[in-house]
C-alpha cells in the first residue's frame, strides 16, 4: 500500500532531484541511527514526501553536505542534515511499517512479514513510547479497517476512511505550531491517504480477485467470479475510479496551495501537480512499475 507518492522524475531539475534524494537519504540515515540498520529497509517515498513537506514549512534553508553512507559506500552523496522533522517522520515510518507487517502476517501468514515484524518490534516500542496518543489513534483506525474488511464493506468511501484518517494523523504533526497549518496539513493527508488506498485497490484488482481477497472496488461494483473477465470489469469502473482519485488529488492540491510554501517549491509542485496524476494515469492504464522505464 506504500510508495505511491513520488515525483515525476523526468520533470525534475537535476538539482531538485539531488535535494529530493538528499531528503530521502537523510530520513534513511535518521532511521538507521535511531532504530538500527534493519529498520532502514522499511523506508518509503510516501514518508519522504511528508518529511519534505514538513521541513518546507519552516523558512530555514535546507542545509546538508556530501557524505558517504552504508547503502551506497562508493560515492559521496548530498544528504540533508537531520532535524526534528526527520526524527518525527522516521518514528512515524517505524510505526506504520510495523502495523503493516503485523497486518500482512495475520492476513496470510507471510513468513517474511512475520520475521520483519519481530525484528522491528523493539523499534516500534521505542517509537510508541514517544508518541503514545498518535499510536493509539492509528491503532483504532486500523482496527476499524480490519472490521470493515471482515464485513466486506461495499463502499470505497467508507473503506478508505480509516487509512485516510491514519494519514491525517501523520500529517497533523505536533511540531507545527500554527493551528491552521496543522488543519490544512491534515486535510492534505486525508485526501492523499484516500488516494493511496483507492489506487492500491485498483492496482491490486487482479490479484485480489484471484485470491478472493477483500477489495473495496470488487465489493462496491459487484464483481463476481475469480479472475475471468476482470479486465472488462477494470475497464467498466475506470471512469468512476478516475473521478474519485482525481478529485481526491484536487482537494489535496487545494490544501497544499493554502500552505503557500516557497521552500522546495519545485519538488513539491512537481509531486502535487505532476507526479501524483502521472502515477494515477499509469495505474489506470495498468502500467505499473514494471513499465516505468519505458515511459521515461
Amino acid at each position: 500500500m506504500f510508495g505511491y507518492v513520488e515525483p515525476d522524475k523526468p520533470e525534475l531539475k537535476i538539482r531538485e532531484f539531488d535535494v529530493f534524494r538528499g531528503y530521502y537519504c537523510s530520513l534513511c540515515k535518521s532511521i538507521g541511527k535511531r532504530y538500527g540498520q534493519v529498520s532502514r529497509l522499511s523506508l518509503n517515498y510516501d514518508l519522504t514526501f511528508l518529511y519534505i513537506l514538513l521541513d518546507s514549512l519552516s523558512t530555514i534553508p535546507a542545509s546538508g553536505r556530501m557524505q558517504r553512507c552504508m547503502v551506497h559506500p562508493l560515492k559521496k552523496r548530498f544528504i540533508v542534515s537531520s532535524n526534528i522533522f526527520a526524527e518525527y517522520t522516521s518514528d512515524m515510518n517505524i510505526i506504520l511499517m510495523y502495523y503493516n507487517l503485523i497486518d500482512r502476517w495475520k492476513d496470510d501468514k507471510n513468513i517474511l512479514a512475520g520475521t520483519g515484524a519481530l525484528a522491528m518490534k523493539r523499534a516500534y516500542k521505542k517509537a510508541k513510547k514517544r508518541y503514545p496518543e498518535k499510536c493509539e489513534a492509528i491503532e483504532s483506525h486500523l482496527k476499524h479497517l480490519t472490521e470493515l474488511e471482515k464485513n466486506n464493506c461495499d463502499s470505497i468511501d467508507e473503506a478508505a476512511e480509516p487509512f485516510a484518517s491514519v494519514m491525517r494523523e501523520l500529517f497533523e504533526c505536533g511540531y507545527i505550531k500554527d493551528e491552521n497549518e496543522r488543519k490544512t496539513l491534515g486535510w492534505l493527508g486525508y485526501n492523499l491517504g484516500r488516494w493511496i488506498y483507492i489506487i492500491d485497490a485498483y492496482d491490486d484488482l487482479e490479484k485480489d480477485a484471484g485470491q478472493k481477497a477483500y477489495n473495496p472496488l470488487i465489493s462496491q461494483y459487484g464483481y463476481k467470479g475469480n479472475g475471468d473477465g476482470i479486465g472488462d470489469f477494470r475497464e467498466s469502473i475506470k471512469e468512476k475510479v478516475n473521478f474519485t482519485l482525481t478529485y481526491s488529488l484536487s482537494e489535496a492540491e487545494k490544501a497544499y496551495s493554502l500552505l503557500g510554501i516557497e521552500k522546495n517549491k519545485g519538488i513539491l509542485d512537481n509531486i502535487l501537480y505532476s507526479g501524483l496524476i502521472a502515477r494515477t494515469d499509469r495505474v489506470l492504464r495498468k502500467r505499473g512499475r514494471e513499465n516505468e522505464k519505458e515511459s521515461v
Partner: peptide
C-alpha cells in the same frame, strides 16, 4: 470542473507526457 481543472493544470499539460 474541479476534476478537469486539476487534470489540466499547466504543469502536467505542458510536460513530456
Amino acid at each position: 470542473q474541479q476534476y478537469t481543472g486539476y487534470r489540466q493544470n499547466y504543469y502536467y499539460r505542458n510536460s513530456y507526457h
